[in-house]
Design a protein around this nucleic acid. Sequence first.
DNA 1: CATGAATGAGTATTCATTCAT
DNA 2: AATGAATGAATACTCATTCAT
Lengths: 221, 221, 221, 221
Amino acid sequence: MDESFDAGTELFRNLSPEKQEKVFQAAVSEFASKGYRNASMNSLVRTAGISKGSIFQYFKTKRNLFDAILEMAVQRVKQHLKQVRGETEELPFPERLEKLLRSGFQFIDRHPLLTAVYFQLLQSGDAPFGSERLIQLRRQGSEFLSDLIERAVSRGELRSDIDIHRVGFLINSLLETLLRAYYTEFLDSGLGLYKGDSKELDLWIKTTVDLINFGIRSNAE
Amino acid sequence: MDESFDAGTELFRNLSPEKQEKVFQAAVSEFASKGYRNASMNSLVRTAGISKGSIFQYFKTKRNLFDAILEMAVQRVKQHLKQVRGETEELPFPERLEKLLRSGFQFIDRHPLLTAVYFQLLQSGDAPFGSERLIQLRRQGSEFLSDLIERAVSRGELRSDIDIHRVGFLINSLLETLLRAYYTEFLDSGLGLYKGDSKELDLWIKTTVDLINFGIRSNAE
Amino acid sequence: MDESFDAGTELFRNLSPEKQEKVFQAAVSEFASKGYRNASMNSLVRTAGISKGSIFQYFKTKRNLFDAILEMAVQRVKQHLKQVRGETEELPFPERLEKLLRSGFQFIDRHPLLTAVYFQLLQSGDAPFGSERLIQLRRQGSEFLSDLIERAVSRGELRSDIDIHRVGFLINSLLETLLRAYYTEFLDSGLGLYKGDSKELDLWIKTTVDLINFGIRSNAE
Amino acid sequence: MDESFDAGTELFRNLSPEKQEKVFQAAVSEFASKGYRNASMNSLVRTAGISKGSIFQYFKTKRNLFDAILEMAVQRVKQHLKQVRGETEELPFPERLEKLLRSGFQFIDRHPLLTAVYFQLLQSGDAPFGSERLIQLRRQGSEFLSDLIERAVSRGELRSDIDIHRVGFLINSLLETLLRAYYTEFLDSGLGLYKGDSKELDLWIKTTVDLINFGIRSNAE
DNA sequence: CATGAATGAGTATTCATTCAT
DNA sequence: AATGAATGAATACTCATTCAT
C-alpha cells in the first residue's frame, strides 16, 4: 500500500490501514502546518478523531511521532528520486534535469503534506534533532546530483574541468529552491510559477536548465 | 541614527536611543537563539533589564515585537545590499557577483544574530506570519539581482536573450543558499565551506560565479 | 495450601493455585517496591503475564487488589506470631520476648516483600484506607503482647501492678519500631543495626529486653 | 509572627502575611491529608484560592513546596524540643520525661497539620527524598534523648551501665509512637487515649514513664 | 510611565478502568 | 473467560498577557 507506514509501536502497525491513514494524515497535517513545537497533540487527536490516550499508545512521545512522520517523508522522497534516476538513465543531461524537475513538481502535487514535512526537515531549526540529520540529507541530495553530473562528464556531455561536488551542491540547491517555490506558491503572484499554468512552468524549467547548461555570459566575449 | 528602529508603539520610539538599543539587542538575541516559539518574554525582559509590563507597552504582543525585529533585520540587509551595489557599480558582472558574495559572508560574520533572524524570516517554519511578507522579500531579492543583470546585459556583458526576471530569481536563490550554508556551517563537515578557511571560500565563490557565467556544458558541443 | 489467598472475586479464587500465586507474587512485588500510588497495573500485568482485562476481572479495582494483598500479608504475620507463641509457651518472659524479636528479624529476612507491604499498611502515608483497619491491627498487636504479659504476671514473673493493656501497647510499639528499623536499615549508618552483624543485633535485643524488664532507674535509688 | 515561614521564592516571602498563611495552610493541609504523591497542585490552588500560575511562581516545583513545608515543620518541632529542654533542665529524669510527653501532646493539639506533615516525613516512603533526611532526623531525635539520659546518669539518677545510645533510640521510639497514637487517635476506640480525657492521658503518661524507669520485672525476683 | 504579581488556557504525558471482540 | 485497544480525567508545569498599584 502506497501510504503504508512502518513506524510507531506494533500496536499502531496492527491498526486497520484506514485508521493508520487517518492518524497519519492528521499528524502530517498538524506538523506540516504548525511545525514541531507549535504542533499540538491535543489538536492532533481532535483532528484524527481518536482519544488522547491512543496517540500515546501508538507513538510513545510527540518526538517519536514526529521522527516517524519525517522518516516516512524522507523515504518517499528518496524512493521517488531513485525511480526517476532509473527512468532517465539513458537521457542526455539537460533532459535528465528537466525530467527531474518535472517529476519533482508532480511529487509535490501528489503529496503536498509530505512535501511540507520534508521541507520543514530541511530548514526549520524548530525540529527536535541536531544538525546531523540535516547535514546528511543535504549531502545525499548533493551526491545524487553529483552522480548525475559525473556520469554526464564521463560521457563527454559536460565540461571535464568542473568541480563535481561543489557544482552538485549548487545545482541541488537550485532545484530545491525551485521546488520549494513551487510548493509555497510564493512565485504565484508576481513571478508567476502558477501550478495550473503549464506554460509558466515550462518557461521556468527551460530557463533553469539553460542557465545550468550555458551560463549567462555573452557569447560574444 | 544607524541603529534606530522605526517600529513598536510611539511610546517605544520616544525612548532614549540607548534604551531602545538595549531592548532591541535583547530581543534579537532571544529570537535568534531560540526561534520564535521558544523565545521567552520572561527571559527577554530579564536580559533587557526592563519590566515585563514595559515590553508589552512598547510592543503590544510577542508577535508584534517579532515583526518589528524582523523588519529591522530586513532593513539592515537592504542597506547593506544598497551599499555594495553602489561600491561595485563599475565592475564587470562576474566581479560584481563575487563582491556580492564576499560582502555577504562578511555581513554574516559581523551580524550573526541579525542573520539568524533574517534567515528565520525566510524560512517559514516556526515564525508566525503568512506568506505575503516572504513573497515580498523574495521578490525584492530577485529584483536586486535582476537589476544587476539588466545593467550587465545592456553593457553587452551577458547574453541578451536571457529571461532577466527568472534568472534573477535563480541566481538570487543560489547566492542565498550559499550564504545560508555558510551561516549554518552545514557544509562544514563534508563539503567544506569552513568559515576560517579562505581557500575553501575562494573555491566556492569561483565555482559559483563560473557556473553562473559559463554553465556546465562541454565546450566541445 | 499455604500460599492460598482468600480474596478477590470468585473468579480469581477458582483459578489454578499456580496462576493465583503468579498474580499474587507480581502484585506483592509491585506494591512493595513502588508503594500504592506508584504501583502500576500495567507493569503488574506485564510481570504477572496476564492480560489487563483479567486483573480487573479478578479484583474489580486497584484498591481492591491492594486490600486483598494486604489482608494476605496480615494473615501471614499473624500466623507467624501464633507459631512463635506456641513454641515459646513454656519460656520465661524475657526469653519469650527475645525469641519474639529474633523470629521477627527472621521473618523479615525471609519475606522482605511481605514485610514491605505490611509496614506500608501500618503507616498511613500513601495507602488508601481509613484508620479502622489500622486501629484493628494495632489493637491485635497490643493484645498479643498483653496476653503474653498477663500470663507472665499470673506466673509471678512480672509486677502484678502493671497496667497490662497499656504496657502491652507500649512494648508492642517498641518491638515494632525495632523491627521496622531492622527492615529499613535506617539504623545502618550511625546506630548500627546492620543485618549481617549478629553481635550488633544481640546487643539491640539485649538492651531492649533489659529496658523492658528492669527500666533504667538507678538501683541505688 | 508564629507561623511565618522563611521559604519559597522572594516573591512568596514578600506576600502579605495573610496570603502567605492562606497558601501555607492550604499546602500543609493538602500534603498532610494526601501525602506527597497524592497531593495535587490543582486541588491545592483551589483550596488556597489562588491561580495555578501563582503557586509555581512562589515555589518553582511541587517538590520545592513540599521541601519548604517539611523544613518548616521540622524547625518548629526542633524549636519546641529545645524550649522544653531548657525549661526542664533542673527536673529529675522521670519528671522531664513526663513534661516532654505532655508538651508533645500540647504541640499536637496546637499544630495538628504540622504534626501530620512531620509524621509523614518520618515514615511515608512516599516522600520524595532519599533516606538520608530520615536517618538524620531519627538520629537527632535519639540524640536528644540520649543527652537527657546521659545527664541523668551523670547525676546518678539512672543506672550507670545502660547503653546510652541504644536506650536513647528506644525511648525516643516509645515517645514517638505514643505521640503518633495520640495524633492519629487510633487509640481512641479501644485503648482509650482520647484527647479530651485528661485522666486517660495521665494514665498513659504514668504507665510509660514507669515502664521506662522500673521495667516490668517482678520485684520479688 | 513603570512595575511585577496574578492569571488561566495551554502543554505533553500517564494510567486505572471499560468494553467490544 | 480472556483479551488489549480505547478512553479521558488527571497530572505538573509554562508563559504571554493583563492590570492594579
